[in-house]
Design a binder for these strands. Structure first.
Length: 463
DNA sequence: TTTTGAGTTGTTCGA
DNA sequence: GTCGAACAACTCAAA
């Protein structure tokens, strides 16, 4: 008679116990080991706020597991070494994961699969309602444009939330664990959102009651902040998008589209893994960018929130203060970096990846490429955000900029968006504008026009 | 097979 | 003050 079977549930970006297909699959064994690997390759490029949020999510997962008689095994090291070692320690006959479609994760899982030898690595489910790669055009080619993707994705549909009841799983304890590390030192006064599955559901239910109704109208208002705040939870899989989709009605189209954008960009990254680094539209590589000392000084001013443009500075300071930035403002600061400062989008994307708690490679890189006009659904080159009119339009009373840029607190209402216009001029402790928007816009348009007009793209137009 | 129209997120200019 | 046009080029699907 063989003894009880054991499986390893290797958690990664799926730090939850409910609606978890891979966990349900792992529970096919008699006992389940819960494992998380602190992978140095992923730890290094993460900023302190994101690491702290990850650690808090892990502590929450561990606490939940303990409530059900289990515990989380945390090990530091290289996954292809650690996962087989834990499987050996536990005498496991299978290792279960949610499929990772990112370029790093997919390659890592392949290595782990090979290192496991006889023990199968079983992939069930993913972080998406529809797995990247599943949705293609009728000719079999991947979509490059959102709207047709969205139509096909909507028609394709997705499964209802899965059953995975942690109370009915027999958890295996006693495998040696390094424990969750101490939180890294955080910037003073930084307040992270509550981590973990319960916090994700609580945040979601609050948004469903209070915010969802006004989402379509107010989501672009950074002063009102009527966004779902689900991005950090989706990032670490504290909640699954299909859980959110199941709660949406016909009238919640705008929010459903936002979830679809996340799926679209994951699919694009899946089909074009190089697009995390490289230009989706290759001809755009020739765009001239500013380099050298002034460019570096401009970049430093941008990161510090000292460009002299209030909405840009407010956003960049919010990023440093909270590890989060309102989506509308992300677009404004991105446009400013690329089209006013003429810096390459990759620099901005790296800064965002480091500082955002919700940083998601696919959404971040492709959002930046969209702004830079180098990606899918590329913004027409002439679409240059005006930081002043954007500020007045989406922060009409100036409340957002005054919250993050205290130097502007003496300026009433929308006047905070144009401190240089006030009777007293720019406040002494605030900065003068580092560039002139109108002039840089003109330069940007000329650059794009020249690049588009090159004969190499087969559509030469001399002007 | 070819044509046609529409497409996340904008701004400016001139009537 | 409001409104439409112009600012390109390319993808995709329906006709």
């Amino acid at each position: 008679m063989p003894g009880p079977t054991t499986s390893v549930m290797w958690f990664r970006r799926d730090l939850r116990l409910r609606d978890h297909p891979a966990l349900a699959a792992a529970a096919g064994a008699d006992r389940v080991v819960a494992l998380f690997v602190l992978d140095d390759a992923l730890r290094r490029p993460s900023g302190a706020p994101r690491l702290a949020f990850l650690y808090q999510s892990l502590r929450d997962l561990d606490a939940e597991l303990r409530r059900h008689g289990g515990e989380l095994v945390v090990r530091r090291g290289t996954p292809e070494n650690v996962v087989p070692a834990v499987a050996r320690d536990a005498g496991a006959t299978s290792v279960h994961i949610s499929t990772d479609f990112g370029p790093y994760g997919a390659a890592r899982d392949k290595r782990v699969d090979a290192a496991l030898g006889e023990v199968p690595l079983i992939r069930t489910g993913s972080a998406y309602a529809v797995a990247p790669g599943r949705i293609v055009k009728s000719d079999g080619q991947p979509f490059r444009v959102f709207t047709p993707f969205y139509r096909t994705w909507s028609a394709h549909g997705w499964p209802a939330p899965a059953e995975s009841d942690p109370a009915r799983i027999s958890w295996r304890r006693g495998i040696s664990s390094a424990g969750v590390p101490q939180d890294p030192k955080l910037p003073p006064r930084l307040i992270l959102p509550d981590a973990g599955e319960q916090a994700a559901y609580a945040t979601w239910h609050r948004f469903r009651q209070d915010g969802l109704r006004h989402y379509s109208d107010d989501r672009n208002r950074p002063d009102l902040d009527n966004t779902s705040r689900m991005s950090v939870y989706l990032k670490y899989g504290a909640i699954h998008p299909r859980t959110l989709l199941a709660d949406l009605g016909k009238q919640d189209e705008t929010f459903r589209r936002e979830l679809a954008w996340r799926e679209f960009y994951a699919a694009v990254l899946h089909f074009w893994p190089d697009s995390a680094r490289d230009y989706f539209v290759p001809s755009m590589r020739r765009m001239p960018y500013a380099t050298g000392k002034i460019a570096d000084a401009h970049f430093a001013a941008w990161t510090a929130g000292r460009t002299g443009y209030p909405i840009v500075d407010a956003g960049m300071r919010q990023l440093l203060a909270e590890g989060w930035m309102h989506n509308r403002v992300r677009m404004i600061v991105a446009s400013f970096l690329v089209k006013d400062l003429h810096l390459e989008w990759t620099r901005g994307a790296r800064h965002f990846m480091r500082h955002l708690v919700d940083a998601d490679l696919a959404s971040n890189q492709h959002g930046w490429q969209w702004t830079a006009g180098t990606g899918t659904d590329a913004a027409p080159y002439f679409r240059v955000f005006n930081p002043i009119s954007q500020g007045k339009k989406f922060d009409p009373d100036g409340n957002y900029v005054r919250r993050y840029v205290p130097e502007l607190r003496g300026l009433p209402g929308a006047a905070a968006h144009e401190p240089w216009q006030g009777p007293a001029g720019v406040p002494a402790d605030y900065v003068e504008r580092i560039v002139d928007h109108a002039a840089e816009r003109t330069r940007s348009l000329a650059n794009y026009r020249r690049l588009r007009g090159r004969p190499s793209n087969g559509h030469a137009t001399d002007r």
